[in-house]
Structure formats: structure tokens, C-alpha cells
């Protein structure tokens, strides 16, 4: 339960910090830290416009998208506090639930019959398919490392072994940061702020959404960022810490993560769309490196030479 509350609090400022960082890096003053929440509240009370081409899919998709993210959040623990649901192999449910939401966003983009949104839908489908192995390999590596297969057990057994786990945590954080950037269609795979539909992924999918639906989708993006932040944060929580230290660490990491994302957005160049698969494959390669790193650490290579 604590996870859900903390994530909700963090969504209030995450995008604000990110946008502020980008503004400062770009030499601008930038909007206030809670501007994105104000924007959402404004959208909630606005009239909704539908395209006449669309069907029921377009209306249900945003609700399903945000439910899928909320559902996924229910599987993430906070330090030694268990999540709402936890069972062996829950990370599979986590990933597939998110995929369920994505499925609906993709078809809702195709529902409008717009060439732009079709483009976004197609890119979303391709990149989320390619990024999936990196995440699964990462979790599988940690499952192998800790001998457990639920988020809660993995996080709680990670630092028992020795200091090698901290190396792994840093590498895992790196991959999670990159996965979060790809999953949200941010740089280097897509650029939300170019005002050119041809270079966007997420934003071009939701051109026809408006009002409450758009607010939900935007809030979903915040939730997704913070959710990955929570996954990263758990690597650095120790069961010896007190609750307040843990919460402090959580907010610290969320802020660092928001600033990092802002800096990455400011100083990274967008890849050519054709090169994106290569970039995503490179993330999978790093996951494989972690996998082999754990194999070496567990001295399984030696059994062959003997």
C-alpha cells in the first residue's frame, strides 16, 4: 500500500522536475513544478471531442491503459514493505499487464484512421516488442542471483550475498532508465517536443484524444516514469534502514531520476527511426552481460572446464 501512496505523491512533481531541468538546460525559466498537474485538472473538466471514425475501442482504451499501469504498480514492493499482490513469477504478470494497456493504446490509435496515428501505433508496437527481452532478462538474472522469482523476494534477498550486488544494481538501474525512456517514447527513440509528428511515438498516437481521456493518458506517462523510478529505488533500499530514511531515499532517487531524464532529453540527439532497433538491441546486450556476470559470479563457468 505504501508503494501506491508514494508513487502517487511522486507523480505530483516528477514531470515538473523533468520539465524544469530541460528548461534550465535550454536556458529558459520553465513552468512551475506542478504545471503538468494543473494541465491535467484543466483537461479533466474540458469537453471531449471524438472523431466520427472512431468506435468504442477509442473510448475504452485510455481507461484500460491507466488501469494496466495501476495494476502493474500493485506488484512493486517498497523496501521491506510487501506490495498488494505478490506471488512467484509476478513479474510476468507485471510485464503482460503493461502490454495489455499498450495493446489497447495501439489499436485505439489505429481506430482514428489517421496516417499519423497509424505511424505512432506501428512504432509503439515494434519498440515495445523489442524492449521486452531486456526487461525479462534483467529480472531473470536477478531471479538466478537471488533464487527467488517474485519482485518482493528478489529485492529482499539481493544484498544478502556480498558487495557484488551493488555493481549489479547500478547496471540494472542503467538499463531500467533506458527502458523507461524507450517505453515512454522519449529520447533517443522518439522526441515528444519536436512539433513534428514524424519523429514522435507516444504523442502522435494520442493526437485525437481529448478531455478526460487525454488527462488519463498524460497521467499514465507520469505514473510509468515514477513506476520505473520505484523499481530502481528498490535496488538501493536496505532492510536495515528506518522507514523515514527509506522514504527519504525514495524521494531523492525520484528527483535524481527526473533530473537525469531531463538532462538526457536535453543533451541527447534523437536516433534515426531506422536505427532505433539497434539501440534497443544494445540494451538487451547489456542485460545479457548482467546475466553472464551473474554466471561468472556463481562460478558456473568453472564446472565446464573441470
Amino acid at each position: 500500500m505504501l508503494t501506491v501512496v508514494l508513487i502517487f505523491i511522486a507523480t505530483l512533481f516528477f514531470i515538473g522536475v523533468l520539465n524544469k531541468t530541460r528548461a534550465i538546460a535550454g536556458g529558459r525559466k520553465g513552468p512551475g513544478l506542478t504545471q503538468h498537474i494543473k494541465d491535467m485538472l484543466r483537461l479533466v473538466n474540458k469537453q471531449t471531442v471524438y472523431s466520427t471514425t472512431t468506435s468504442i475501442i477509442f473510448k475504452i482504451a485510455p481507461s484500460i491503459y491507466i488501469s494496466s499501469i495501476l495494476m502493474a504498480i500493485c506488484f512493486i514492493p517498497f523496501g521491506s514493505y510487501p506490495p498488494l499482490f505478490s506471488f512467484k513469477g509476478d513479474f510476468v504478470f507485471f510485464a503482460y499487464t503493461l502490454a495489455f494497456g499498450k495493446f489497447f493504446m495501439i489499436i485505439s490509435a489505429l481506430d482514428t484512421g489517421s496516417p499519423f496515428e497509424g505511424m505512432g501505433a506501428n512504432r509503439e508496437a515494434l519498440y515495445s516488442m523489442l524492449i521486452e527481452p531486456a526487461f525479462f532478462l534483467l529480472v531473470a538474472s536477478f531471479a538466478m542471483f537471488t533464487d527467488h522469482s517474485s519482485f518482493y523476494d528478489i529485492y529482499n534477498h539481493i544484498h544478502y550475498a556480498d558487495d557484488f550486488s551493488w555493481v549489479l544494481s547500478v547496471m540494472a538501474s542503467f538499463i531500467l532508465v533506458q527502458i523507461a525512456m524507450v517505453e515512454n517514447g522519449r529520447l533517443p527513440v522518439g522526441d515528444p517536443k519536436t512539433h513534428l509528428e514524424l519523429t514522435m511515438i507516444h504523442e502522435v498516437m494520442i493526437l485525437d484524444n481529448s478531455g478526460f481521456d487525454l488527462a488519463m493518458i498524460l497521467y499514465g506517462t507520469s505514473l510509468k516514469f515514477v513506476m520505473y523510478g520505484m523499481l530502481i529505488c528498490n535496488f538501493f533500499l536496505d532492510s536495515t534502514m528506518s522507514v523515514f530514511t527509506e522514504i527519504a531515499v525514495f524521494f531523492l532517487i525520484q528527483i535524481i531520476w527526473a533530473i537525469t531524464a531531463g538532462l538526457l532529453e536535453s543533451f541527447r540527439a534523437r536516433e534515426r527511426m531506422k536505427k532505433n532497433p539497434q539501440f534497443i538491441f544494445s540494451l538487451m546486450a547489456i542485460s545479457i552481460v548482467i546475466f553472464f556476470g551473474i554466471l561468472i559470479w556463481q562460478q558456473k563457468f568453472q564446472t565446464i572446464s573441470n
Binding site: V49, T52, T53, P62, I64, S67, T112, G211, F212
Partner: peptide, 27 residues
């Protein structure tokens, strides 16, 4: 999960209905 989706959709529909809806061509 299903209950959650239905709840959110119902809340959303009530809110959207109170805000009024319009139809137009695809952008």
C-alpha cells in the same frame, strides 16, 4: 484487474457525459 478497468471506465464515462461530448473529423 477487470473490476478496476470497469470502475475507471464508469467514472470516466460519468465525468465525460457531464462535460458534454462532441464529434468531429479525425485530425
Amino acid at each position: 484487474f477487470v473490476i478496476m478497468m470497469i470502475t475507471i471506465y464508469v467514472i470516466r464515462t460519468l465525468k465525460v457525459k457531464s462535460n458534454s461530448e462532441v464529434y468531429g473529423p479525425t485530425w
